[in-house]
Computed example of a mutant assay.
Amino acid sequence: MSLYRLNRLFNPSSGRLLDVAVDHGFFGEQSFIAGIEDMQSVVDTLVEAGPDAVQLTLGQAKYLQRVPGKSKPALVMRTDIANVYGNPLDAMLYSHHLPDAIEQAVRLDAAAVCVNLIQLPGHPEVREANIRSIMALRTEATRYEMPLMIEPLVMQNNSTAGGYQVDGDIDKITTLVRQAVELGADLIKADPSTDISEYGRVIEVAGDIPVLVRGGGRVDDRTLLERTVAVLGAGASGIVYGRNIVQHEHPAAITAALLAILHDGADVDTALAMVTGAAA
């Protein structure tokens, strides 16, 4: 792992990271592209808002990386694609990583790559495919000193909860996070737990590997900001939010509010006022 690349991700003052995930179109689900149909416009808005990083796919990274100047967000490149989010699930499930993902990430000047580690009830073959991808990517990431972000994703049964619904069971989350660490993660992108007061357990099992907390499905602004303060208080090193930013009515304002919490220590009410002020 190259510390040089990680230095481009984390804010030098706070040591924390806001990564905005806009890789949802990779998974072939129609509902995932709501609000991100025009990727040029989405990326332009994010560059102006100034998060620490933006998570994109091989095909969409160009919109970020062709922006001139030194101050734009760093690129985190998504490396794998799966069909596990539909309801009902397809008859045949798959998960594949780009065979030359690390070389492509180097060419695109990415600061890190991201790969899933999915636990889907009744489908251990998906987790096996993820583990194979992680092992292959770990070898190449080491060769090129590319930080590897593993995303342990504990999912509920799609037939009862719908696609992309996470299971907030802290025991399941900590077990999968620990497996990601054992597989050689440089960064962990983890689910939030249902009881956020227990989140210190996730930080503990990750050891010295930075934990970034996923945003999950859309929630109201206060809930999002309160959760952010809570996971940072538990020891998380940052957040990776997608739809709660790009599908927000005021994406620049919610980004500014989150950055204020992460890097300036703002409280929930101060950050919320930044969002409501933009709506006024």
Rank of each mutant, 00 (worst) to 15 (best):
R5C: 02
A21C: 02
H24C: 08
F26I: 09
D38N: 15
V42C: 02
V42H: 04
L46T: 08
V47S: 09
A53H: 13
Q55E: 09
K62N: 05
Y63C: 02
R66M: 05
V67L: 07
V67D: 06
S71E: 10
V76W: 13
M77I: 06
R78C: 00
T79W: 01
V84T: 11
N87W: 05
L93H: 03
V106N: 03
L108N: 10
D109Q: 12
V115P: 01
N116C: 14
Q119M: 15
G122D: 13
I131Q: 07
R132K: 15
R138H: 11
R143E: 11
E145Q: 11
I150C: 02
V154A: 02
N158R: 10
A161P: 09
D171I: 07
Q179F: 04
L183M: 08
D186C: 04
I188D: 00
A190C: 12
P192A: 13
S197W: 04
S197Q: 12
Y199M: 05
Y199W: 10
V202L: 06
V205N: 13
P210H: 12
R214H: 08
V229N: 07
A230K: 14
L232K: 14
Y241Q: 11
R243S: 04
I245G: 00
H248Y: 11
H248E: 01
A253N: 13
A257N: 12
L259R: 15
I261N: 04
D264M: 02
V268Y: 02
T270H: 10
